[in-house]
Amino acid sequence: MKNILGLTALATLTCAFAAEAMATEWNVSVWGKRRAFTEHVEKLAELVSEKTDGEFTMNISYGGLSKNRENLDGISIGAFEMAQFCAGYHRDKNRVITVLELPFLGVANLEEEVAVSSAVYNHPAATDEMAQWNAKLLMTSPMPQYNLVGTGTPRDELAEFEGMRVRATGGIGEAFKAVGAVPTSVTSSEAYQAMESGVVDTVAFAQHAHLSFGTINRAEWWTANLNPGTVNCPVVVNIDAYESLSDAEREALDSSVPEALDHYLSNYGQLLKKWDEVLEEKGVEKVELSDEVIAEFRAKAADPIRENWIAEMESQGLPGQELYDLVVKTLADHRGGS
């Protein structure tokens, strides 16, 4: 009887260890703090855990695993299984998706941003380039058009951008450079300090980032309608980790992406509705630039930067024109179907 009891206990213990060993736990590297920009990552983790009865979980770290500019490197060596990064942080490593950061693409809302990002992410050139870093593009982090906050006299004429020191990355930085501004690519976490110390005069962010990183607290004005473009910040997974998932785990992850993005869009929509209240509460002047000024900005920045980007990509063996045309076609198709 003792032997039977002992064997039963051993079998139970073995099963418990086996069940524990079967559980999958991923580390996820993001930065800053939980905010609108990370809500789809949080929702994804929640959904995956629910769908697998807690057998597949994600530990989301806000800066504890890596610096934001090093997240793609961390993915490439398997330091963690999932990460978020922005294309402008290392344009040479993710050239294909920088098409989404070209200025004045005409993307009107977050739904359109999801559509064009998904189209580019699924292009073979994007898949192949990310595979060089052992990374698989999972989903975008859609953001509205960037706008400036600044101090002092509002800049609502293009001539006033001459010499303006602006925190701006990627295509947005190139756009401001085209009209005489001086862009700097300090990280989002460093933007407040750069503004406070006078390293920059203005900061270009989406609304959530002006709130999360405190730049709105130093602002005296906000350009409500400049809309020069946005940045593209994908969430990627380590390919080896993705392929090692069971079929059920992979299905739980893949099927949760649309749900996570829907949650993100809903959450961000609520933030945008409250934005005018935030400006009023903090005493920030809302600056509307004239159509003529915006047209002048677009003429100086959009066409030359786009043509240079296409030529540069083609010279490196990448389908620059095809990628740009894909964005234009996706926008037209999305609008036609909505």
Rank of each mutant, 00 (worst) to 15 (best):
V149Q: 01
T98I: 00
G214W: 00
R155E: 05
G337S: 15
A9D: 12
T184N: 14
E162C: 04
F104A: 12
P154E: 01
S246H: 11
R306W: 12
S29H: 05
E196C: 06
F37G: 09
L272S: 06
N238V: 01
E243C: 01
P234K: 01
E281G: 04
W133A: 11
E322G: 06
E249I: 02
S29R: 00
A108M: 11
T140G: 07
N94K: 00
E160I: 03
V278K: 12
I294A: 08
A301W: 08
A252V: 08
L72E: 03
L323T: 00
H334V: 04
P304Y: 11
E46F: 09
F37K: 08
V287S: 09
T230I: 00
V231K: 02
W309F: 10
N147I: 08
Q132S: 10
F17W: 15
A311V: 12
V116C: 02
T14E: 13
A311C: 02
M164I: 10
A301V: 08
L102Y: 02
L72R: 06
D156N: 15
S117P: 03
A115W: 01
W275K: 05
D247L: 12
A191P: 02
I239H: 06
E280Y: 07
S185I: 06
S66D: 12
M164E: 02
T140Q: 01
L245F: 04
Q84A: 14
E285N: 13
K300S: 12
E196A: 13
E314S: 11
N71K: 03
F17Q: 15
V166A: 08
R335N: 12
Y62H: 05
G150H: 03
F213I: 04
A194N: 07
G32Q: 06
L272E: 13
L245T: 04
N147T: 08
W26P: 00
A194W: 03
A83W: 05
V293W: 09
D247K: 10
Y264A: 12
G180W: 05
W133Q: 11
N122W: 05
R335E: 10
L7A: 15
W275F: 14
P234R: 00
M58Y: 01
M195H: 05
M130N: 03
D73M: 07
L271N: 03
A204R: 04
P319Y: 00
E307V: 07
L100N: 02
M82T: 07
K93N: 11
S141D: 06
G6I: 15
V278G: 09
A224D: 14
L271V: 08
A19V: 14
E322A: 12
F205W: 06
K300F: 11
S246K: 09
Y62I: 07
L226F: 11
E196L: 13
T215M: 08
T127M: 15
S76R: 07
C15W: 14
R69P: 01
C233T: 07
L158I: 15
T140S: 04
T187N: 14
G163W: 08
H210G: 09
L110H: 00
E129W: 00
P124E: 07
S246V: 10
G32E: 02
I239N: 10
L137M: 12
V257C: 13
V116G: 00
P124W: 05
E160R: 09
L44I: 10
S212H: 09
T12S: 15
L253N: 01
V328R: 13
E160S: 14
S315N: 11
Q145K: 12
T230S: 11
N238L: 04
W26F: 15
H263C: 08
A83T: 04
N225A: 07
Y324P: 00
